[in-house]
Computed example of a mutant assay.
Amino acid sequence: MPTPDFIRAVRATAGQQLLFLPGVSAIVFDDARRVLLVRRADTGRWSIIGGIVEPGEQPARTAVREVYEETAVRCVPERLVLVQTLEPVRYPNGDLCQFVDTSFRCRATGGEARVNDDESLEVGWFPVDGLPDLEDFAVSRIKQALGDGPAWFDPMTGV
Rank of each mutant, 00 (worst) to 15 (best):
V100C: 11
R39Q: 14
R45W: 11
V73Y: 05
D95A: 10
S47H: 04
V53T: 14
V81C: 13
V115T: 06
V53M: 01
N116T: 11
D133A: 13
R105Q: 12
W46Y: 13
R107H: 07
D95S: 04
V67T: 15
S47P: 08
E54F: 13
R79P: 13
Q58D: 08
E87S: 07
P55N: 02
C106V: 10
Q98R: 13
A41D: 00
G124T: 09
T71Y: 06
E119R: 14
C97I: 12
Y68W: 13
P77V: 15
P92F: 07
T62R: 09
A41P: 02
A108V: 06
P59W: 02
V83R: 15
P127I: 02
R105C: 12
P88V: 05
T43K: 00
R40Y: 07
D133L: 10
P127V: 04
C106P: 03
Q58V: 07
T62I: 07
P55T: 00
V73W: 03
V73Q: 07
R90I: 08
A108W: 05
R45Y: 09
G110H: 14
Q84K: 12
L82G: 12
V64G: 08
G110T: 10
N116A: 15
D101P: 03
G130A: 15
I49C: 05
G124H: 01
R40Q: 12
V73I: 14
Q98E: 10
D117M: 14
V89H: 01
G111N: 14
Q84Y: 10
V128P: 07
G51Q: 05
R65W: 07
V73A: 06
T62N: 06
G50H: 02
V76R: 15
G51W: 03
P92D: 10
R39H: 04
R79C: 10
T109G: 00
L131D: 01
E112R: 12
S103K: 06
W125R: 04
I52E: 14
Y68L: 05
D133P: 10
A60T: 11
S103W: 00
Y68K: 09
S103M: 07
D117F: 15
L80E: 06
L121R: 14
